[in-house]
Amino acid sequence: MMSSSPGIKVREHVDMVYISMETAIAVASVMGNVLVVLVVCVNRALRDTTFSFIVSLAVADIAVGVLVIPLAIIISLGYNTHFYTCLFFSCLLLMITQSSILSLLAIAIDRYLRVKIPTRYSIIVTQGRVYVAVCLCWILSFLTGLVPMIGWNNHDVQGNLNISNEIICEFTTVMRMDYMVYFNFFGLVVTPLTIMIILYAEIFRMIRRQLNRRAEATCDGDRYFQKELKLAKSLALVVLLFIVCWLPIHVMNCISFFYPKCHIPKFVMYIGIFMSHVNSALNPMVYAFRIKRFRMTLIQITHRCMFKPTTPTPCPTSTPGFSEKVDINM
């Protein structure tokens, strides 16, 4: 009994460090993405189709801080729960992740159409259709995330349940790895990300071609395509960060599935899970540092919160100088 005590203490220390770091990321994710939504609401110039999808992505990231991270902490602690309660918690994690991926895919398609058909873009991509697309992203996320609830799970695995139908709630206890690898990773993560990479590569190719063509003809680059190039780079960076943050945990799932004898230490799994959650806190930083209008509106909001005017002034519906509906200036 005494020999196992140091090991238990090390595990408890790892758990406490993990919970503390996850809590900090949850707070940063919620605060940062609430500001994203607030900035878009305040600045009318940012209320275009692309930022509708960015708001959808921000809402998903807020859900990561409010729901996913607390549930991940609960699951990591291994409480005794009913099998389907634990399974539902695990499915919620997948739903939010999938909504982020689909929002990123919608953003990539939107930017592709904006460059491919600039003259017809406003006719085809209306705000109403964007709202429908956002709703479809969330509906598909919930449907695909609920697939394990209808049978693709570990319920029938021998020895998984006790007499009271309660288990120690852990993600790998209820979720089948073939679902996580084949359906979730290859089908719902790799496929959309591959499409995004192709779309952004085509966006950069078309923009470079347009800029070179106009530079040869007029000795001056086109302002429209310059803006599109800058915004495309920023949004492509968001996709790149998503890949970097989410790849480790999916690689670990593949290792666990294809090489079941290979043991992955718990602290390594914690690092992979933590990195996937960090992604939700990084997106607001990308917007703030890369998108000028976003940054300027954020500075104005922060300034007004910290330095309130001495004389009462009516609360404006938009920030001064940003109310005009123009293309996003980087």
Results as ranks from 00 to 15, higher is better:
M1G: 05
M1N: 07
S3H: 03
S4P: 00
S5K: 05
S5W: 01
I8Y: 00
R11V: 02
V14C: 00
M16D: 03
E22A: 05
T23L: 11
I25Q: 04
A28Q: 01
V34C: 06
V37F: 04
V40W: 04
C41S: 04
V42Y: 11
R44K: 11
A45S: 14
S52M: 04
V55E: 01
V55C: 12
A60L: 03
D61V: 03
I62D: 02
A63M: 12
A63D: 08
A63K: 07
G65N: 07
L67W: 10
P70E: 07
L77F: 10
G78C: 12
Y79H: 10
H82K: 13
Y84G: 13
T85M: 11
F88P: 08
S90A: 15
L92A: 05
I101G: 06
L105Y: 10
A106M: 09
I107N: 06
D110A: 09
Y112A: 12
K116R: 14
R120E: 10
T126D: 05
Q127F: 03
G128P: 01
Y131W: 04
V132I: 09
V132N: 03
I139S: 05
G151A: 10
W152S: 10
N154C: 15
N160G: 14
S164H: 07
E166V: 08
C169G: 07
C169N: 02
F171K: 02
T172G: 11
T173Y: 04
V174L: 01
M180C: 12
M180F: 08
M180I: 12
F183N: 09
N184I: 06
F186A: 15
L193E: 13
M206H: 10
R209F: 07
R209W: 08
L211Q: 08
R213E: 07
C219A: 14
D220R: 15
G221K: 14
E228H: 09
L229W: 13
K230D: 15
L231K: 11
A232H: 07
A232M: 12
K233L: 14
K233M: 15
A236D: 13
L237C: 15
V239W: 00
V239A: 11
L240S: 09
C254A: 14
F257K: 01
F258W: 11
Y259Q: 08
K261E: 09
K261C: 00
C262G: 01
C262Q: 08
I264R: 09
P265C: 00
I273Q: 03
F274M: 10
H277E: 04
V278P: 02
L282W: 08
F289C: 11
R290Y: 08
K292P: 00
R295E: 06
T297H: 04
T302Q: 07
R304H: 06
C305S: 05
T311Y: 13
P312Q: 09
P314E: 14
P314V: 04
C315H: 13
P320K: 13
F322A: 06
V326A: 11
